[in-house]
Write a protein that binds this DNA or RNA. Structure first.
Lengths: 336, 336
DNA sequence: GTCGTTTATGAAAGTGCTTTCAGTTTAGCA
DNA sequence: TGCTAAACTGAAAGCACTTTCATAAACGAC
């Protein structure tokens, strides 16, 4: 690789156009403050040299980076991807770059949290579905790192939440209306401690609660706590369907797990929705493809909102904190 | 937000520990070159102040950014996500940050290409599924921007490719072996010009060719060029299945489109695979969930490889160019 | 023709680190 | 005790910009 020609700097342009570097800078940043003739001379030089200001130098002087970071576990899981899509769409409009910090262990997270605010790598931070210790939150705050959290909240940081309990209730109501009597729940109720957020638990709570209010019970046998891995999910689904009195409806706490359940049903020859109704949660893209009834939590929107809040606070840091609650909606398709 | 306390700089640490800033730098970067006592004094000061070197300042001095960029269209489509996953996994091991540049228009792409190499924002670039003009390629090269391309190649840049034609052949062979006689093809043969890469066309070519060699024909009626949108894909699928003599096997050039076809089959009561076989391409995660027969192109691996090549060249820039060809494999599941 | 303004420009400081170079200290050894 | 080499350390330059401040020129009004 012939990296020969070093790209021209502001000094080269200054020399060629016979003015000082400050004038170049002015031409670029406050064009109206400079004599039209000089302006032209400078622009000519810039064109001739193919000069482009270096972002990093600019960033140092400006004390901003035009870059925002997203801290996320499994950024590759469909629901996270859809949130990222929302973030990206908001950012690209504003000409911000998107940096992704994939979190796959607690150490990782701690590492990021302790260095990010001080490194000054980014202008703002979005934290997705990750719990934050009080100390970490404080560090973000005292270092003036603008932050928006999704699926977790802290009194001094912006947050975007959904009401998981209500989501569970929606599902229960829907299934009851459909005439079901035997229900089951499947989801990762106690995720690895490192993430420490428990949306699934709340979904279960709401589900169970509405069921009980309507006079139905949801005994332990019909509640399966399973990690997100397809194999284990399928195993659990299989067990549920093999019960002496199998459920006629299963609520999966995530769409991906619902997919696994559908697969098992197919293998076992269990007819969906006739023999078994299945409801998911999230409404990821594929849910529509496979006609899965699910609870829509508007993932894209949550990401877009997070980014918008961030940008508005970066621009004008004294805006009040925002704690937003996004609505949920049950989308009925053909699995119920 | 109380951004009061500015984070401490190397100067603060120097003052507190009574040495010069160069020594602080040395303690951090070449610890063995410094007296153990001094080392300890400095570390104490660092701890007391909670000092963390600012990444941007460091980057300026070091002339590197520890950051690599990925230029990708629709980074949100499953296949791109899986490649990104590969990239991310390789990067996080090496402690590099991942910056995503979503390309949604030709202008966008041009903008990135003209500024990225000169801005010096990143140490390396991965370009996914995007065609590069010769001039753009030259700019990358002359500016010494290390680059790896996926799904497109340029003689002077690293590239990772698959043999799409061969992929089409694999599908044809498989379907023929299964005893099919009437075939159809569905895919985005002529994607919007801005992306200018034509993997789908090659898949069709290979498919058609193997079919013909085996004595079967694939007439225009059975070839549908359709953009990726679910609605249009479904429409086309519907048309195919409504033909006087409907195909008994459809090859969709992407898994997502195969999903749409499956949905239509379901709606129409067409039994898969008995009445209709469906084969996809890519082997994205959901393919396994829905038991879709498809051609695996090891998306994760392509991303990981791209990142690894990049990192190795960044470390040692005189390594030879690499043009890698990734193998394809037909994965038989239950839709055929 | 002088004084007060406005406008255009350059010099220089600031940004926070790395690294080279030269100087100082220390240790080892005769 | 004196000398040399090795180990350590600090000053300063460099990185490529922005921005403040001061100066110079041009202009108009009296």
């Amino acid at each position: 690789m012939v990296s020969s020609k070093k790209s021209p700097t502001i000094y080269d342009v200054a020399r060629l156009s016979g003015v000082s570097i400050s004038t170049i800078s002015r031409v670029l940043n406050m064009p109206d403050k400079v004599n039209p003739e000089t302006h032209k001379r400078v622009m000519d030089a810039i064109d001739k040299l193919g000069y482009v200001p270096r972002a990093d130098a600019r960033a140092r002087a400006l004390q901003n980076t035009d870059r925002i970071g997203v801290l996320t576990p499994f950024f590759t899981a469909p629901s996270f991807v859809q949130r990222l899509r929302g973030v990206a769409s908001a950012l690209s409009k504003a000409n911000y770059e998107l940096v992704i910090y994939p979190v796959d262990s607690m150490d990782h997270l701690q590492g990021y949290l302790s260095s990010i605010p001080l490194m000054r790598n980014i202008d703002g931070l979005i934290i997705m579905s990750l719990a934050l210790g009080d100390q970490d939150a404080q560090r973000l705050i005292t270092n003036g790192m603008e932050t928006v959290m999704i699926e977790y909240s802290h009194p001094q940081l912006n947050s975007i939440l959904i009401n998981d309990t209500h989501g569970g209730q929606l599902v229960a109501e829907h299934l009851i209306k459909k005439g079901h009597k035997t229900f089951a729940f499947l989801g990762d109720i106690e995720p690895p401690e490192r993430f420490a957020i428990h949306p699934v638990k709340s979904r279960l709570t709401g589900f169970k609660q509405s069921l009980q209010e309507a006079g139905f019970s949801l005994s332990k046998t019909y509640i399966r706590s399973v990690p997100y891995t397809p194999a284990e999910t399928r195993q659990a689904a299989h067990e549920l369907m093999s019960l002496p009195k199998p459920p006629t409806a299963i609520f999966a706490a995530s769409d991906t797990q619902a997919l696994s359940i559908m697969k098992v049903a197919r293998q076992l020859g269990v007819k969906v929705p006739d023999d078994l109704a299945i409801v998911g949660f999230d409404d990821i893209d594929v849910a529509e493809h496979v006609d899965l009834t699910t609870v829509r939590q508007h993932l894209d929107e949550s990401g877009r909102l997070a980014a918008e809040i961030l940008l508005s606070r970066i621009g004008e840091s004294e805006r009040p904190l925002q704690h937003i609650n996004l609505p949920l909606k049950l989308v009925e398709r053909v699995t119920t």
